[in-house]
Amino acid sequence: MHISEGVLSGPVLAGGWALAAGGVALGLRRLDYDRIMTVAILSAAFFVASLIHVPIGPASVHLILNGLLGVVLGPAAFPAICIALLLQALLFQFGGLVVLGVNTVDMALPAVLCFLVFGPLLRAGGKARVVGAFCCGFFAVLGAGGLTALALALSGEAFTATAKLILTAHIPIMLIEGVLTAMVVGFLAKVRPEMLSPGLSG
């Protein structure tokens, strides 16, 4: 979910950068050098996972996994997502430096909010964990789609239709992300429960 360069208006771009800088600074402040390597390599893992295409009917969608990133990394998801997007600009020229702020906020803010809201459910275990994990995956993509649509709508009324289209197109992706996040969290809870502990997510 990318807004390409050249679409958004100046105030939206500046607002995106301000929010992104704040989020990244907050994420970095709570990140000590003990965990920095884990966050770096997990960011790489999420970058790779987001290149996986999952079939849905005759089409296929690529995973976003920002909800799962929030579950595992907590507030450190902000710098992690910013870096993943910077690498996409560097390696594939998707997006650029000016729109990086808005794109970071679109993806990272819902991820961190979901972590804060559903975090207690995740640590409860049993059915609550499944529900919490599904909600993280579902609402993180919903939030990302919503913020992307908002950024477009704020840049001019001409984009309102495009924004609605983007939001609608994301409904099946939300469901898939929710289901996959629930399954991945179940797997991690069995295999590496410490990855879901608040110690890692700060």
Binding site: D34, M37, T38, A40, I41, L42, A44, A45, V48, A49, I52, V54, P55, L63, L65, L68, V72, I176, V179, L180, M183, V184, F187, L188, V191, R192, M195
Partner: peptide
Amino acid sequence: AYRTYAALVAMVLVRAYDRSRRVY
């Protein structure tokens, strides 16, 4: 298929996590 994808993603994360501890 979805369960398999989830296991793939989870296993990538587990291995990345283990590797990060060793590297650190």
